Structure formats: structure tokens, C-alpha cells
Simulated scan of single mutants.
Amino acid sequence: MLLIFDCDGVLVDSETLACQIDADILSGLGLPYTVDDITREFVGKSMKDMIARIEADHACTLPEDLSERINTALYQRFETELQPIDGVREAILALPYPRCVASSSVPERIALSLRVTGLADLFENVFSATQVAHGKPAPDLFLFAAERMGADPKDCLVIEDSTAGVQAAIAAGMRVIGFTGGSHCGPNHAQKLLQAGATALIERMEELPETILR
């Protein structure tokens, strides 16, 4: 079995920071998005897809350097504030299966996130949505990761925190555990993940080994 971990909201508790920065910068451009708006609409999706959706919804053209602005602000916050999901290192080390990361974020953000939180040594194989044509909820990224890791999709188990990620895993023919322990997860998050197709749910990473091994 191959374990495929999302990064933001599963390995690192980054989504609240990221959504705040997105909302602040977009509001400064005259697009009054709140943190809740960003969380609801865009968590789990790539920056490219978020920008395309906003431009379509508002019939506007966003600045060409918007991604750079957001990432610059985000990376500065990550260096001093980003934390790993509680217990995730111990949970990963308790599992005897090959593993990789498949994230909607750009490679630079993934690498920074893993370095700052002390998780980089756990993952030799890291895949980004920038390597495929379509980001989550399309299955492309998970199928790409499975192919590169030499695994059959039916033998893959995905750990995801977003509905887009769960939908992508299901579309790829993979089982998926929904994680609801990130700081961005509201009271209805578990239900949303179940509705998206999650085959199991965990609220704490210490539950992961038992959930997989039982």
C-alpha cells in the first residue's frame, strides 16, 4: 500500500495563515473576500485555479504578479509561525508503508513547509499540482503520484483535509481518510468530507496508524 499525504492542513497547519493572507491581499485589490470565503471556496485548490475562478466570477484581470505577492507574504509568515499538525511525525513513523506528498501548492511552498516544521526528512518523494494539467478535484495529481511511485491506484490510501482533495482521490480510484484536525476545520467539516466520499475520518493524527492498520 502507498500512503499519499496532502500537505497543507494534513502535515502542516497552514490553511488559516494562507486564507488570511489571500483575503487581505484580495481585499486590498477591491475584492472583499473574507477568510471564511477563501476557506469555503478555495482550500485544497491550486493558486492557478483560485485566480482563474476569481477572474471568472468577477469578470476582471488580476495583477500578473499576484501569485508572487501572496507567496512572498505567506513565506514570511511560515518562517516564524507555521507549525506541524500535532502528532503527525509520530503517526507517520508508526506506519510501515511507502509514502509521498501530493499537494496543490507549488514546490517551493511545499519544501518550505516541510523544512520549517521539521518534516522534510520523512518524504523523499514530493509531487505538486504544477506537474499535472488539472489540479484537485481532478484526479490528475494523485494518479501522477501513484504512477511515479509505481503503485496501482487501488492500492493507494490518501490522507486529505479538503473536499477537493477527497473528490480527487475518489476520482482516482483511491481510498481516502478525511482529516478534520486542522485549525481551519469548522464544525461541519467532517460531514463535508464524508459527503465528498471519505471512507474514514480522523480528528487527531494519533488515530491514523490504528485507522490504517485495523
Rank of each mutant, 00 (worst) to 15 (best):
E79R: 15
E15F: 02
L208E: 03
A91G: 08
C185T: 07
S104H: 03
L93W: 14
A138T: 09
S67E: 14
A138I: 07
V176W: 05
S183H: 12
P153V: 10
L29E: 03
E55V: 00
V35T: 08
T211P: 04
T163C: 11
G44N: 07
P32I: 09
G9P: 02
A59V: 12
I70R: 12
A91S: 09
T34Q: 00
G150Y: 03
A94F: 10
Q131E: 08
E64H: 12
D8Y: 03
P137S: 04
E203M: 15
R115F: 10
S162W: 04
G30M: 07
R99H: 08
E81H: 09
I212P: 09
D24W: 04
S46V: 01
E90P: 11
V12F: 02
T163H: 06
D24L: 00
E124Q: 13
Q191R: 14
H134N: 13
F127D: 02
T199H: 15
M149K: 03
G87I: 01
A172L: 07
M47Q: 15
S67R: 15
G182R: 03
K136D: 02
L26K: 01
R109S: 13
K48R: 15
E124V: 09
E79P: 13
T180H: 02
D140I: 08
T34M: 00
E206T: 12
L208D: 07
L82N: 00
P32F: 03
R109T: 10
R99D: 03
L93F: 13
R175K: 14
I110M: 01
A18D: 04
D152Q: 13
L122R: 00
D121Y: 08
A111G: 12
R109M: 12
I177C: 02
R214M: 15
Q20A: 11
G178F: 09
D161P: 05
Q131V: 10
L17G: 01
L17R: 06
A52W: 07
A56P: 14
K45H: 07
T163I: 03
L82G: 04
S14M: 05
L11Y: 01
V176L: 10
G30A: 03
V116P: 04
P137M: 04
P107H: 00
M47G: 13
H184N: 02
G197E: 02
D152W: 09
A52I: 06
I212F: 09
P63R: 07
